[in-house]
Amino acid sequence: MTEWFADNFVSILNGLAIGSLLFILAVGLSLVFGMMDVLNLGHGALYLIGAYVGYQFTGGVSSWGGFLTALGVAAAFGLVAGLILSVATEPLVGRGHLDQALLTLGVALVVAEVISIIFGDDVQNVVAPPGLNESIQVFGNTYPAYRLALIGVGAVLAVAVWLVIEKTSLGALIRASVSDREMVSAVGVDNRKVKAGVFAFGSMLAALAGVLGGPVYGARTGLDETVLLLALVVIVIGGLGSVRGALIGSLVIGQVESLGRANFPDFASFMLFGALALVLIVRPRGLFGSKVGAG
């Protein structure tokens, strides 16, 4: 057991890093869905925007200034994009998931194509800021410092989001909206404002994840689809609209991805979706699912 652990230590760390990134990405998607019943298939495109913003401002040069600027710009992009998506999906409320999925899918296609027109189809690398762009020794293993930092950032964000959702009045409002939208609007809260706020916040996190994930995954076309699918798997496993579910789902998927790829390279993607299928057979509403989304 200890031997196995030692052999797979790097993979486990990688899994944690992937899990952190996935959590940042998936929590917004999960809340938007859980609260507003909107399945946002444009979530991956937001990540892609973040990744290319990161590439644009760091430009292959390791600098804190560029990296932090990229984070700021990506956050702004995400907020605005979230507001736009929130307004755009407003007329579709009550028309079923398919129309929302089609709309956000259309937006995602347009965004991905525009990015490919601007930046071309080549794979672009994003360099981690100084001090983090080297490897350090962790229990006798060489490991990229940036990924450790990513785990830290993920942990901090997870705690922060958890505190906001569970402990503040805003969070209470969000949770109430997840469990009973009509009731919240009946007591006089403007549903659309809550929705726009959560949409903007979730989209901002997705764009930030794009910048943060840059030094690990780079920036390339098709990445939007990959991360969207991972995020969907995470929230299906964790249960829609649950922060705790998104966290646990992210960690599980991070480990499945990482350990799977390291130990069974040929079957890694099967393990991912095998895990999904397994959870859905055993717990059709996800590990922490509510009744939301059954319609």
Partner: peptide, 23 residues
């Protein structure tokens, strides 16, 4: 597996199955 689920779960599950077969 897929037709047991409803609504948005069906969307996601078919998406995942499609992706699995592509992989």
């Amino acid at each position: 597996l897929a037709v047991r689920s409803h609504g948005v779960f069906f969307l996601m599950l078919t998406l995942a199955i499609g992706e699995l077969i592509q992989q």
